[in-house]
Amino acid sequence: MKRTHLPLNALRVLDAAARHLSFTRAADELAVTPAAVGQQVRALEDTLGVVLFKRTAKGLELTPEAAAGLGALRDGFLQFEEAVRAIQAGQTSKTLTIAAPRDLTARWLAARLADYGRTDPELRFVLIASDDDLDFTQANLDLAIRLTDGPGEHEGVALGGTGHVTLALPGAPDRLIAWPGQPGEGGAAMTVADAGLAIDAARAGFGRATVPALLAEGDLGGLAVVGEPVESPLGYWLIAPVPQWRQRKVKALVAALLG
């Protein structure tokens, strides 16, 4: 069934003017001018084809047509308010669905989520391993972490900057372990799927791996930083479309991860 277009602003003005029987007091409530209230009432009268108010010596009076519809109108506004509260109640969910690269989850994210989870025993996390862009709606994602050069079409904030460090075991051969997206030189002696596997290969003594500094935090299993940090156009970003980004639970998680 096709729904009739409802002039909601004008109906809100009608409700206020009917309660106060004064365009001036209705304007004060709605934070507009009395002239704007009068214009909305006249436009609504034109749309509905009825007169809504009579002006008498005592002030405004409702016409029978206006009075007949006020009860249903006010019930409708109450239902709108209940609908908004029901929609907002979804923000109280304690489940967060996060997409992130596997190596970042294993070497950085999981520990931070464990710390954050201890702040509220009702928190639940759903982790999706992904290095590619996902449809936030189809995947029911709240937040994604990407190794990229910015948030793109979404809202986002950089996580840890774009610095990369080179890791190697002391005495390891000077061979490069490469992975997609790494900065710097070519001529790799080994190519692996991600920075986490590059770290594993370096720990096995194969050579040196240049990886995001974020992945080099914590226990490196004997690996040492070699040389100076390297800048890259790519860094980890926390991203989400605007509706997800504005959720209280997402804001709290982003603050915790940045902290």
Rank of each mutant, 00 (worst) to 15 (best):
P64R: 00
P64S: 00
P64H: 05
E65T: 14
A66R: 01
A66K: 06
A67E: 15
A67Q: 11
A67C: 00
A68T: 04
A68L: 04
A68D: 11
L70S: 02
L70G: 01
G71D: 12
G71C: 04
G71Y: 10
G71N: 09
L73Y: 05
L73R: 02
R74D: 05
D75I: 13
D75N: 09
G76Q: 02
G76D: 05
F77L: 13
F77A: 06
L78H: 07
L78I: 06
Q79M: 13
E81G: 03
E82L: 13
E82Y: 04
E82A: 14
A83H: 03
V84W: 04
V84K: 04
R85Q: 08
R85D: 12
R85W: 04
A86K: 09
A86E: 11
I87F: 13
I87H: 11
Q88E: 15
A89K: 10
G90E: 14
Q91W: 14
Q91R: 10
T92E: 15
T92C: 04
K94C: 07
K94Y: 06
K94D: 12
K94R: 15
K94F: 04
T95V: 13
L96M: 11
T97P: 08
I98G: 12
I98P: 01
I98Y: 03
I98T: 09
I98Q: 05
A99C: 07
A100S: 13
P101N: 08
P101Y: 08
D103W: 13
D103H: 14
L104P: 03
L104E: 06
L104Y: 08
L104M: 12
T105V: 15
T105M: 12
T105W: 14
A106Q: 15
A106F: 04
R107V: 06
R107S: 12
L109P: 00
L109I: 12
L109V: 13
L109E: 08
A111C: 01
A111F: 13
R112E: 15
R112W: 12
R112L: 11
L113E: 10
A114C: 03
